[in-house]
Amino acid sequence: MNRVKLLKILSYISAFFVLASFSLLIGFIFVKGAPSIKLSLFFGDTNPWQAIIGARPVWNGIWPAFVGTLYLILLTMLISLIPGIGCGIYLARYAEGKSKEVLSLAVDLLASVPSIVVGLFGFVLILLLRHTIAPNATTCIILASFCLAILVMPALVVTTRSSIESLPEALLMTGASLGFTETQLLRHILIPAAGKGILGGIMLAMGRAAEDTAVIMLTGVVVNSGLPAGPTAKFEAIPFLIYYTSAQYIDRDDLLRGFGAAVILLILSAGLLFIASRLQSTMEKRWKGAK
């Protein structure tokens, strides 16, 4: 029974290691960052209201980065929602045989592409545009969103597909007994029933778009641009601000701002994950009895 004992020791050590380093890490961030979470973290010395309507630029606050991140999430979702969910539905209901296999392999592979390579792709795209149709093209927020959309699309496809496929057989029968066509079945029965699962996938995708740094690093994020001026402008974003602070902070205030931004980003992505898992578990419960 030596093996059992050895495994037991290992399991206790690892559980301790994970719990300890997790609490140390999060505790550290919160203890350092929590005191700096107040209005001036966002707006610095600028009047908050004037900053929000954009009348005055914010120099020593994270507001521009915060707005930049929100814009990024929004644009990314706009670009990726329809192809992502559409592809998920197609895989779950329409695709058959060879094409299903190939497509799901493609989605899997895309999911495993490192984010820096996706960023590099965006960069190459700009180089190509410069050589062909738009000599002035440069990295910007719309390009960053496009690349983020490529990055989060697999998550959307997979969650949409699995939430539709996990629905009970009885629902399909209902559709058939009502004489529904495939489109009607999807539109009136399957999509509403799987809605929460799909929504959960959207939240997960938003979380990934919010936290990713490698992609935006190559596609136009900068440190001091103020609020994004348009779809082809440079922008700021919270993850990059954190990264930049860790390497280039000048004084204590800078550092504290970095910690504050880290807490905000942590709350943002943990919150999105929480909502996503809530949605998915309520959906699971709803259909558990029906199987």
């Binding site: 994970v18 890490l25 740094t213 980003l265 992505s269 994950l273 898992s277």
Partner: peptide
């Protein structure tokens, strides 16, 4: 508790890991 912590850990942005580790 451990499995919940592990789930939360999937949501921690890598940049936050990096940031905390630089100073810790």
């Amino acid at each position: 508790i451990l499995s919940n912590v592990l789930r939360i850990m999937t949501a921690i942005p890598t940049v936050v890991y990096g940031f905390a580790s630089v100073f810790l």
